[in-house]
Design a protein around this nucleic acid. Structure first.
Lengths: 341, 341
DNA sequence: ATGAAAGCGCTAACAT
DNA sequence: ATGTTAGCGCTTTCAT
């Protein structure tokens, strides 16, 4: 096998044996100062530690893993990092896992089930002890993979008590219902729904089902790119509608902000001329003008719950229960009661 | 050692020997169907593959790593995921690394050098072959760590040809100079500078140095939290200034958007009453109203460049050169020429 | 308190 | 085309 140059440094990394030889002790002793320093005499210990420093010895993770059977890290698969909502989820997940002494490794899937399988494979290859997924629409190959590796796997961003995987998340149907219900209570009966691509996105689909379940409203659905630009686009379409909707329910804050900005540019007054409601509750949503009313999705709590579930699964063999977290309506300035007809 | 339950599944994972035995072949043959399937007879191969499926065998990453000396993944350390700028960088980095057959593992440091050391340690522990850092301000322990592990390490978001680490990034000083220079050319001589915490943030410090290097301007510096709220805060402070600055240069788009929204709320017309300039060029910046003029920071190219550098370092032993990427002024709507005095 | 030696699961020579 | 075998770097009995 060709010699692998892992750095500019040429002389290959020192190993246990090198240290043992240099310190004039056995490998067992060196291993002991590494793992249970108190079980070795102070003199020897200090000597060995000195040699370890001199030789710049770092234990091989692989060799450790092979012996302990543990790598102590879990993998997370998210559609994209380019959405603050996942960032916040991951931050919470990472923190909670840390309490179990578990590290987190993140991969992005671009919302593509095949990429997800590839990335999952990589994660398993490098030794992930568990997987945390987003959403519930996954390629069959993914399930085979995790089953084959007997890998604890958790789905999030979704609540589905009877699915193939334990899920921790909010009920997207309910979240969407809250959204439309609120608008209805404010007197709106002609509502435009702005949402991202439905294709392969189970969360979006669930939300739309939630919307449709509320009757007594005339809906106009706008499917656009999941981006600010998409939101702007939707705003244009909506303004051209006859009769014009009195409110816009966006299935994501990113979309809602795109809508907001475009309406502002067109000098359509919000919420006087038209109401806008978001979903997610991003950090920025509180600071838009007007401040965005939205459905808060509990992603931080979801991250913490997922972390606990995985931690207990891995450390105590506790199979997680499906866990449902409640979305919450946040009323700010972008939705108004409908006055005149 | 206590038996580790890695899943609900109880019977321990099958290994190469189990497969070999069940298939009636040697471990070498099984290893071959795994790594060079063509070198084994179709019959045997298919048989072995069948057994692999039945036994749900997945090769141990650790054992592989120990033999090949390779884990094929690199670690990246970023301050936070909660900023689109890092998300875009990471996406580009991940894609480029993939071309080298290298996976990416991300950890967040919260801009804290000590956390960075901890996270770096974890990354090395799980077998990262290289590290990609953000910024150049790092704890000494970090350098010791990477030196000890002889780990290829790259710093980004910064250009510093003579530093301890190879760097790939833009010159933050130049970026800030471009910002102020542009405002100056538009006739502004009283400028407010809005920036995040200077403490431990080398990029911000460099930018401020860039600002100060341009003379003929009266500056007012506003240090605020790095957030939309921080930007809003700064806007309030600036409006109270006597005489009022004619332009605001923000050292980040997040801050600039905070400023924009607050000014809008206060009905201060942009750019008529005051000009606002950002830095970063986030996806949203193009869609604000008015559209944000800003200094584009080439984070995507930076991600690609970093990926290539690390890939070539790892795969071909090529030590990277420091690489400098140019920021670029994007003029949109939020900055105007100063007319009346 | 320390050492010798047997593996962990795999890959890669080297044989056949 | 397939098998045998010697490790990879470490942890862990079991002796001493």
């Amino acid at each position: 096998m060709a010699e692998f140059m892992r750095a500019i440094g040429d002389k290959k990394r020192a190993n246990l044996r090198d240290v043992a030889k240099a310190a004039g002790v056995s490998v067992a002793t060196v291993s002991r100062v590494l793992n249970s320093p108190n079980s070795v005499a102070p003199n020897t210990r200090e000597n060995v530690q000195r040699v370890i420093g001199e030789l710049r010895f770092t234990p091989s993770a692989a060799a450790r893993a092979i012996n302990s059977g543990r790598t102590r890290f879990v993998g997370a698969l998210v559609p994209t990092l380019d959405n603050a909502i996942f960032a916040r989820f991951l931050a919470a997940l990472e923190n909670t896992l840390a309490e179990f002494g578990l590290a987190l490794v993140v991969s992005t899937t671009g919302e593509d089930p095949n990429t997800e399988v590839e990335k999952a494979k990589s994660l398993i290859d490098i030794g992930a002890e568990a997987l945390v997924l987003s959403g519930v629409a996954h390629a069959p190959a993914l399930f085979e993979l995790t089953k084959a590796a007997q890998l604890p796997t958790l789905a999030t961003s979704y609540f589905e008590p009877d699915g193939p995987l334990p899920t921790i998340g909010y009920d997207n149907i309910v979240a969407a219902q809250m959204s439309v219900q609120h608008l209805l209570e404010q007197g709106h009966h002609r509502i435009a729904i702005v949402h991202g691509p439905v294709h392969r996105n189970d969360r979006t689909r669930a939300r739309l089902n939630g919307v449709r379940s509320i009757s007594g409203i005339s809906y106009s659905f706008q499917e656009v790119d999941f981006s600010f630009e998409g939101g702007a686009q939707a705003a244009d379409n909506i303004l051209a509608l006859e009769p014009r909707p009195t409110a816009i329910a966006c299935m994501s804050d990113v979309l809602a902000i795109g809508v907001l900005q475009r309406l502002q540019r067109l000098e359509v007054s919000i919420p006087n001329e038209i109401s806008v409601l978001g979903m997610d509750d991003l950090p920025i949503s509180e600071h838009t003008f007007p401040a965005l009313s939205t459905i808060h999705l509990p992603v931080k709590r979801m991250g913490a719950a997922a972390g606990n579930a995985v931690g207990n699964w891995l450390e105590h063999g506790v199979f997680p229960n499906a866990e449902k977290l409640e979305p919450k309506l946040i009323t700010r300035e972008s939705v108004a009661k409908l006055r005149d007809q």
